[in-house]
Amino acid sequence: MQTVTIAGSQVPAIGMGTWHMGDDPLLQAQEIEAIHAGLATGAKVIDTAEMYGSGRSETLVGKAIKGVPRDQLYLISKVLPTNASKARMERSLDASLKRLGVDDVDLYLYHWRGQTPLSETVAELQRLTEAGKTKAWGISNFDVSDLEELWQLPDGPKAAANEDLFNLGSRGVEYSLLGWQADHQLPFIAYSPVGAPDQLNTHLGRNPNVLKVAKRHNVSAYQVLLAWDVSHPQLLAIPQSSNADHVKENVLAGNLQLTADDKQLLDEAYPAPTEKLPLDVL
Rank of each mutant, 00 (worst) to 15 (best):
K135F: 04
G138S: 12
I139D: 02
D143P: 05
S145V: 10
S145K: 12
S145D: 13
L147Y: 00
E148N: 07
E148V: 11
E149K: 09
E149P: 00
L150Q: 05
Q152R: 14
P154H: 01
P154M: 09
P154Q: 11
P157E: 03
P157I: 01
K158P: 10
K158R: 15
A159D: 10
A159T: 02
A160C: 02
A161V: 04
N162Q: 08
N162F: 03
E163N: 13
E163K: 05
E163T: 10
E163R: 02
D164G: 11
D164A: 12
F166T: 01
L168G: 08
G169S: 04
V173H: 06
E174G: 09
Y175A: 03
Y175I: 08
L178G: 06
G179K: 09
G179M: 01
W180I: 08
A182N: 06
A182P: 08
D183R: 10
H184L: 06
H184G: 14
H184A: 04
Q185D: 15
P187W: 06
P187H: 09
P187Q: 07
F188Q: 09
I189Q: 10
A190K: 03
A190L: 05
Y191S: 06
P193Q: 09
P193K: 09
V194T: 08
G195D: 05
A196F: 03
A196K: 14
A196P: 07
Q199F: 10
Q199H: 14
Q199D: 04
N201Q: 15
N201E: 15
N201Y: 11
T202F: 14
T202P: 08
H203E: 12
H203W: 11
N207Y: 01
P208I: 00
N209E: 14
N209K: 15
V210A: 01
L211F: 06
K212H: 10
K215D: 14
R216M: 06
H217S: 01
V219Y: 00
V219M: 02
S220E: 08
S220M: 11
S220K: 05
A221M: 01
Y222P: 07
Y222N: 15
V224A: 06
L225Y: 07
L225C: 11
A227Y: 03
A227K: 08
W228A: 03
D229P: 06
D229W: 03
D229M: 04
S231D: 10
P233E: 08
P233W: 13
L235A: 03
A237G: 10
P239G: 07
S242K: 04
N243E: 12
H246L: 12
H246A: 01
V247W: 10
K248M: 09
K248H: 06
K248F: 01
E249S: 13
V251F: 11
L252A: 15
G254R: 01
G254H: 03
N255G: 05
L256G: 02
L256P: 02
L256F: 04
L256R: 01
L256D: 10
T259S: 15
A260V: 04
D261H: 12
K263N: 13
D267A: 13
